[in-house]
Design a protein around this nucleic acid. Structure first.
Length: 411
RNA sequence: CGGGGUAUAGUAUAGUGGUAGUACGAGUGGUUUGGGACCAUUUAGUCUCGGUUCGAUUCCGAGUACCCCGACCA
C-alpha cells in the first residue's frame, strides 16, 4: 500500500478532548475517528488491526470446534422479559427503540438470551449437543460514562461465544478448553506475559466467573496476581476464604491495575430453563441445556495493546496485529524505493510504502507514530552503503543491508 | 446518575463589549530531503437559543456537546 494513496493521515497534535493514550495515538496515527463520546469509527489502518485480532481469535475458536455465525443487533422485547432483563432498572445499558407499529425493540448489548432462545429451534436431543457458536458483533451499550478512548465504548466489537452442553462434565471440559484457547489468543497478540486468568464474582450459578485481565494503568480493575500459579484474583472477591480455597497467601499476591480483556461464565441450566431450551436425554427425559458464555472485547483489546506497548514516539504494534509488517520510507529516493517496494510486495510481505513528498524528519516521526514492526529507510546514506536501513520499531539503531538480506529478514 | 471543568478555522491555541490573531494542516508556484525543512501566496473560525446593551465571540441565563472524578459495568 502506498501511503500517498492511504485514506486518512497522521496529525501532529492530539485532539484536546482525548486524554487516554490509546485514543490520542490512534487518532493521531489515523487508525480511528471519533464520532461521539464512546463511539469510534475504524479507518483502514485500524480496521486492519481489528481484522488481524479477529483472525487470531477465529483460529482459536475454530480450533475448539466453535462455529461462527452472526446474530442481529435488533432484539425482541419478549426475549428479555423471559429472563427479566428488559427493565431499565435491571439493565441500565439498554438502547431501545420501536418499530413503526409501536413494537418495542432493544439494541443488543449482549446476545446470550437471543442465541439461547434461537437454539430452541435447533436443539432438541442429546444428539444435538454439544453445540458451540460464536460471533463478532457490534455491541451497543448506553454507558453512563464512556471513557479511556476505545477501552470503554457505547458501541464496540466483541467476540462472544456460547456453549451448549448436555452435562456439567462436558461443560467443564469445554470451559477449560476455552480458557486455554483464550490464553493462546492473548499470547499471540503479544499480551501473554501480562494477562492473567482471574477469579471474579460469579453470579447465580457458580462461585466464580473468570476474567482475563491485562496489567495496564489504563485499566479499571484491581487484581491480585499470584505469578507462580499464573492466576489472579479480582479485588471484588478477594477474601480470606477465597485465598484458602485457591491455596494462596496474601503476602504472595501482587496488586496491579488491569483491564478486563475477556471473561467466561457458567450458567448451568438456569437460563435455559427461563428461555425454554431443553433436550431429551437417552432415556427420553427432558433436561435443561447447560450453558456457558465466553467473551473477548476485540476493540478494547486493540486499545490495551496500544496502552501496553506505546513509547514516546508512538504506537508499537506486536507483529501479529500490526496493519503492515514493514514501513518502507523513501527519503528523496523514490525510484530505488519503488523497486524495493515491488520486491517486498512480490515476496508477499505486507508493506506500507511512504512515497509522500515530505521531509525526512516528518516521515521518520510518522513511522514511529504508526508503529509498524520494521522500518526500512531508503535514502542517500543507505544507498551509498549498499542498500536499505532496517530497524525494528523498538530498536535504537538500524542496520544497513542489501535487499536480499532485507527480504530474508522480514519474510 | 451525583460532583467538577471546558467550548474560538480541519487541528492546536491567543485575544477583545466595537474590523478575531498565530502555528500546524490544506491549495498554488518554487527550493528542499536521515528526525516533524524553507520562501512567496491563498484558504478557513467565535457551540445553540434567549437576556442585558447602541453594539455580545466576550457579560448573564438556559440548553447541548465534550473531558475529568465518583457511582455503575456479563
Amino acid at each position: 500500500m502506498k501511503q500517498s494513496q492511504l485514506f486518512s493521515k497522521t496529525r501532529k497534535e492530539a485532539p484536546k478532548d482525548e486524554v487516554s493514550k490509546n485514543a490520542q495515538l490512534l487518532i493521531r496515527a489515523g487508525f480511528i475517528h471519533k464520532e461521539m463520546a464512546g463511539v469510534y469509527a475504524f479507518l483502514p489502518l485500524g480496521l486492519r488491526v481489528i481484522e488481524n485480532i479477529k483472525n487470531i481469535i477465529r483460529e482459536e475458536m475454530n480450533g475448539i470446534r466453535g462455529q461462527e455465525l452472526i446474530m442481529t443487533s435488533l432484539q425482541r422485547k419478549e426475549l428479555w422479559e423471559k429472563t427479566d432483563r428488559w427493565d431499565d432498572e435491571k439493565v441500565d445499558v439498554w438502547f431501545k427503540s420501536a418499530l413503526k407499529n409501536g413494537t418495542e425493540v432493544g439494541f443488543g448489548w449482549s446476545h446470550e438470551e437471543q442465541i439461547t432462545e434461537m437454539m430452541t429451534n435447533y436443539i432438541s436431543s442429546y444428539r444435538d449437543l454439544p453445540t458451540y457458536v460464536y460471533q463478532f458483533q457490534g455491541k451497543l451499550r448506553n454507558e453512563t460514562r464512556a471513557k479511556s478512548g476505545i477501552m470503554r465504548c457505547r458501541e464496540f466489537v466483541m467476540k462472544d461465544m456460547y456453549s451448549y452442553c448436555r452435562s456439567e462434565e462436558d461443560h467443564k471440559a469445554f470451559y477449560d478448553d476455552t480458557t486455554a484457547a483464550y490464553l493462546r489468543v492473548f499470547e499471540k497478540v503479544g499480551l501473554g506475559d501480562r494477562t492473567f486468568f482471574t477469579f471474579a464474582s460469579g453470579g447465580a450459578f457458580t462461585q466464580f466467573s473468570h476474567e482475563f485481565q491485562t496489567i495496564t494503568d489504563a485499566g479499571e480493575d484491581i487484581i491480585y496476581i499470584h505469578r507462580e500459579k499464573k492466576l489472579a484474583i479480582n479485588q471484588e472477591v478477594l477474601t480470606d476464604e477465597v485465598m484458602v480455597l485457591l491455596g494462596v497467601k496474601r503476602e504472595e499476591l501482587e496488586e496491579a491495575k488491569a483491564a478486563e480483556v475477556g471473561n467466561i461464565f457458567s450458567f448451568g441450566g438456569a437460563k435455559s430453563e427461563q428461555l425454554g431450551l431443553f433436550f431429551k436425554d437417552e432415556n427420553g427425559i427432558s433436561q435443561p441445556v447447560i450453558l456457558g458464555s465466553y467473551g473477548i472485547g476485540v476493540t478494547r483489546l486493540m486499545g490495551v495493546i496500544v496502552e501496553c506497548f506505546a513509547d514516546d514516539g508512538g504506537i508499537v504494534w506486536p507483529e501479529a496485529v500490526a496493519p503492515f509488517k514493514v514501513h518502507l520510507l523513501s527519503l528523496g529516493k523514490d525510484e530505488e524505493s519503488e523497486k524495493i517496494y515491488q520486491q517486498l510486495t512480490a515476496a508477499g510481505v505486507e508493506v506500507l510504502f511512504d512515497d509522500r513528498d515530505m521531509g525526512a524528519g516528518a516521515k521518520l516521526a510518522d513511522s514511529d507514530l504508526m508503529g509498524m514492526p520494521y522500518r526500512v529507510v531508503v535514502g542517500k546514506k543507505s544507498l551509498e552503503q549498499g542498500g536499505a536501513e532496517v530497524k525494528g520499531r523498538t530498536e535504537e539503531t538500524g542496520v544497513i543491508m542489501t535487499v536480499e538480506a532485507l527480504l530474508e529478514k522480514v519474510k
